[in-house]
């Protein structure tokens, strides 16, 4: 009886582990997509209405999905605090806090980081170029992340469960 109970627990644990890994694969393209649309909003604010960065970031944070809004909200808060840091530094600080909680990978991190160093320091045409470049790069990552997700989500969902079963069978 105890054996049966143990094997059920092991199988479930294996299955859950698999689902957690699968989830991180399926979340990344979703987050990247949200980021892309948030950057699109930021570009619109900057090029069409020349909204000051702090205000623009606030508007983006209010409209963007909750998963990515903290990145923009924190950058804004840091800018408004007038602690003497530049937009690039504020962005990087916010990014460092945002990154561990997100499903993003290092390559996504570096795209966002290099965008930060250009934020707010040039005319709107130049800003638009930098934002577009970042959106394009994110777009490429989205494609890659989606094909990865397609393969890995199913794989891990089964693999976790089956892995649990294998362990049970080995020790039963």
């Amino acid at each position: 009886m105890l054996k049966l109970l143990g094997s059920i627990v092991v199988t479930i644990a294996g299955g859950l582990t698999g689902m957690v890994i699968a989830r991180s694969y399926s979340l990344r393209p979703v987050e990247l997509r949200y980021l892309q649309s948030a950057l699109q909003m930021l570009e619109t604010e900057i090029t069409y209405t020349a909204t000051p960065l702090a205000e623009a970031l606030g508007l983006v944070a209010a409209r963007a999905d909750n998963r990515v809004a903290p990145l923009f909200e924190q950058t804004r808060a840091e800018l408004l605090s007038m602690s003497g840091c530049t937009a690039g530094e504020a962005w990087e600080n916010a990014l460092r806090k945002f990154y561990p909680q997100s499903a993003l990978l290092t390559c996504d991190f570096s795209i966002l980081r290099s965008l930060g160093s250009a934020l707010g320091i040039s005319d709107s045409r130049d800003q638009s170029k930098h934002l577009r470049l970042a959106m394009e790069q994110i777009g490429m990552e989205i494609n890659r992340a989606e094909s990865n997700a397609l393969r890995h989500v199913k794989l891990w969902n089964y693999l976790g469960f089956l892995g649990g079963l294998v362990i049970v069978l080995l020790f039963y």
Partner: peptide, 17 residues
Amino acid sequence: IQRVTQLISGCSLYALE
């Protein structure tokens, strides 16, 4: 100089063309 330039513009040079 770069920092002051950014700070006077509220980090939004594009808004001050």
